[in-house]
Structure formats: structure tokens, C-alpha cells
Computed example of a mutant assay.
Amino acid sequence: MIDTAILLAAGEGSRLRSAAPYKPLCPVGGRPLIDHAIGGLAQAGIRQVVVVLGYGADRIEAHLAATAWPVAVHTVRVADHREPNGVSVLAARAQLAGRDALLAMCDHLVDPELYRRVAQAGTGGGARLAIDRRIDSDWVDLDDVTCVRTEGDCIVAIGKGLAAYDCFDTGVFAIGPALFAALASLASPSLTEGMRVLAAQGSASTLDCSDIDWIDVDDQPALDKAEAWLHRLSTKRAAAA
């Protein structure tokens, strides 16, 4: 089982600026997004988290340093947060020393079971993406979500605005040397482009996690949905106690 995670938290998050100056510190259910992510990774059995920072790095790093975490937390920085997200992935490469890792997004609120399932499944020798086949879900912003087309468990197309797709990218991956090599081969390395390189090689696979909830907290409407989701969870837990 994979026991190390890379958590991408370098972006500017301008669409959530009204809720928080720095997206990773945006409160959802009374806790910053980054706390949800790191806590969820710990619940899933991850032992070490490498957080990639860029915009607002000093403030976010201070928050991380002031918090007692149930896992080891390390930070790395990108020189320019405006670079494609593959640059953030590559920034964590040296921390892994050739090991596989779980890759997650700080702005995705995720049931920890999704992290655990992907960590157990591993990379399959290339890279594995957790997908959601609930393509009629009203929790997803169709103008922003990354769409995926599959054949069996293999990715054949991935990107925003695909004309034909059968699932969504949840933002949770199992990655290793193959994806790092693919990203390093690109002039402007985005995660989607790196996955396209592996898909062309037949080494980009999927893991169906359609039974597990997640949401990309990218703007105020998504934040409202995330708050409602957490409220329902807390009500359900209180009733079961």
C-alpha cells in the first residue's frame, strides 16, 4: 500500500477569494480545506504528506507548522504558482526518492475511503486515476471538471470539454516514476498532458470510485454544496451516536 501523498496547494484560487485570501485556508465546516485533506489522508493510512506550495506559501506554511498533525508533513515550493500543475507535481519528485505516491488536490473535499482505495490499488506500473461514472451528478461543475473517456479500465482521452466522455476525474491518483518521466518530457507540463502521454503508451488506468463522495471546492457555489454535505454527515453521525 502507498504510504506517501503529494498534496497540490500552489494555486491562487481567485474564484474563492471572497471566502478566503488563500484557498487552502478557506474554511469548510469550520476547518480549512488543507486540514480536511491532510486529516483525510491520515485516516486513509497515509504516513507522510508532501505539500506543494506557491501562492501564499508563507501564510500556509505557518499554518502547517502551528498545527499538530497525525502524519509527517513536509513542504516544497514552486517558483511560480502560475505554471501548469504538472510543475507542482515535479517539485515533489525529489522527496519520493523513486517511490510511488498518492496524488491529491488540496481544494477537493474527499471521503477518506477514496484515498485509501487508491493507495491500496497502486499505480499498476504507470498511473492510476480514481474516476466517478456519475456523469449526471449536480455536484460537478461541467464547465470546470476534467472529463475522461475509457475503454475497460484504460484511459483513452482526458481533458476539460471533451465531446464524448463516460466519467469524471476525481483529482486523486496513484503515481510513480512513469508519470514523473512523462511530465519531465513536456515543455509545459500539466497533469492532464502527462496522463495523455501515459494513455498513449497504454499505461494510464482507472479505478472506479463512483460509490464514494467528493467535491471540487473551486468557487462559492461549490463551497455552499460542500458545507451542506458536511452538515449532512455531521447530522448523520450525531444520530448514530
Rank of each mutant, 00 (worst) to 15 (best):
F173N: 00
G98Y: 02
L25H: 08
G39R: 07
T4P: 08
A42R: 00
C147R: 13
E193P: 00
A104I: 02
S205N: 13
L230N: 03
A44R: 04
P70F: 09
E12H: 13
E83L: 15
A241P: 03
A239P: 04
K160A: 14
I131F: 03
R117A: 15
A164G: 09
H108S: 13
I2S: 05
C147H: 13
G152Y: 13
A187P: 04
M105N: 14
G45K: 02
H63F: 15
V87F: 01
H36V: 08
R15K: 14
G176W: 08
A101Y: 05
V156N: 07
V51A: 10
T206D: 11
V172N: 01
V49S: 07
D138C: 06
V148F: 08
A241W: 10
D153N: 12
I212C: 09
G125H: 07
R47Y: 09
A101N: 07
D141Q: 12
E61M: 03
K23C: 10
V110T: 15
S88R: 01
D58W: 00
R134N: 15
A121N: 01
V140R: 02
W139F: 14
L103Q: 06
V73M: 11
A184Y: 02
R77D: 14
S188R: 13
A65E: 14
R47L: 12
C26Q: 08
S205T: 15
A187L: 10
A119P: 07
P21F: 12
R128V: 02
G171S: 03
V28E: 09
G56T: 06
F168G: 07
P32R: 02
L64Y: 09
V28H: 03
V49W: 10
D144G: 06
P24N: 01
G98R: 00
D132M: 08
G152L: 11
A226S: 10
F173V: 00
A65C: 04
G29W: 04
G13N: 06
E61A: 15
A130T: 10
A174S: 10
L207V: 11
A5C: 05
L233T: 08
L129M: 15
V51S: 02
T67A: 12
A44I: 03
R93V: 00
H36D: 09
S210T: 14
G126P: 09
D111P: 00
L96A: 09
G98K: 00
M105I: 05
I131K: 03
R59Q: 15
K160L: 00
A10P: 05
L186P: 05
A57H: 13
R196L: 13
